[in-house]
Amino acid sequence: MRFFAYPYAGPEEIRRHCIAAPPGALIRALPDLHAWLASHPDALIEGSTYVVDLRACLRLSPRRSEHVACAGGEDVLAAGEMGFFAHARGASVTAVSNLSTGYRPDVSCWDAVAESLARAGLSAPPGFTTSVHFRRCPACGESTLVKEQWFVCTFCDADLPLEWNVSARREVDVVAHVDRVRSLSTP
């Protein structure tokens, strides 16, 4: 599968401050999610910070964590916030956004989120429950959040492009990467 990898586009001082922090918890299966929620019960109320790493695996951190810390300083396939609902069988994912001012991913990163949740055996909403559009202004160079589908720069009132243009994302082949990693670790 091919996805876009998004580089960190936030303030460098935040990256430097977060680089020593451990990355977010790897969620590869439903028991991983249940264990993480048991150790972070506030996440059932306020949600969590998430990233999808370059192997298309979901990583979770407490809600007020920096996305770059959750990602271990690496590029991501997706980043945002995730909400959960507790029920008799454990918990499920009920809300997902792409709200990350550090990575500013395009709404097209949903495919990577859906893939990471499917790989972990987690059900998901049919798409982002809250989608955010980030754009870089061609006139002043500032990154801005598009609100109410009004593609106008909040800094200089210039028109913003309809297509995502925040940073130099790159296309990655996740399956080939995973297969290469598996072949390197196989005796």
Rank of each mutant, 00 (worst) to 15 (best):
M82C: 12
G141L: 07
A25D: 10
A29N: 09
V68H: 06
D179G: 01
S65H: 11
T94A: 06
P138R: 05
D179W: 03
D32I: 01
R89N: 12
L184S: 08
D53P: 13
V152G: 07
A112Y: 09
P31N: 08
V93Q: 05
E142T: 14
A9H: 01
C156A: 06
V172C: 02
G90T: 06
H34C: 11
F134R: 06
G10H: 08
R2E: 15
R16L: 15
R182V: 09
A29E: 15
A86M: 07
T101R: 09
H40D: 08
E171Y: 01
P23N: 13
D157Q: 14
V51A: 12
S108Y: 04
P138F: 03
C18A: 15
G102V: 11
W36P: 00
L145V: 15
A124W: 08
R170P: 00
H17Y: 13
V107W: 02
E46R: 11
D173C: 08
D159K: 11
T154H: 08
A25S: 13
E115W: 10
A95H: 13
R182H: 03
V76L: 08
A5Q: 07
R55I: 00
H133L: 10
L117Q: 13
E171G: 02
R59F: 07
C156Y: 03
L184V: 00
T129L: 02
G72F: 05
R55W: 12
G73L: 13
E46V: 10
F84S: 05
R135F: 08
V132A: 04
D75P: 02
S97R: 05
I27V: 14
G121Q: 07
E163Y: 12
S65I: 01
R64S: 13
E46L: 09
C153K: 09
L117D: 02
D75H: 14
C57Q: 15
A86K: 15
V166W: 00
F134E: 02
L26C: 10
G72C: 10
A25Q: 09
E66Y: 15
L60R: 07
H133G: 00
A71M: 01
W110E: 10
P23M: 06
V181H: 11
D173T: 07
L44Y: 04
E66M: 13
G47C: 11
T49F: 02
A120N: 12
R135D: 06
S185A: 07
E12A: 13
C156S: 13
H17A: 15
R89W: 04
Y50P: 00
V166E: 02
A5G: 11
F84G: 02
F85K: 06
P125G: 12
V76R: 09
Y8K: 13
I45K: 12
Q149N: 14
A43K: 05
R55E: 14
P62M: 08
E66P: 02
C18W: 06
A124C: 04
W150H: 15
D173G: 05
L77K: 09
G72N: 12
P138E: 13
A176F: 01
S183F: 08
R63P: 06
L145A: 08
V51L: 06
L60Q: 05
G73C: 11
P138L: 04
A79W: 05
C70A: 15
W164V: 00
P161I: 07
D179V: 04
V166M: 04
G83L: 04
V113E: 12
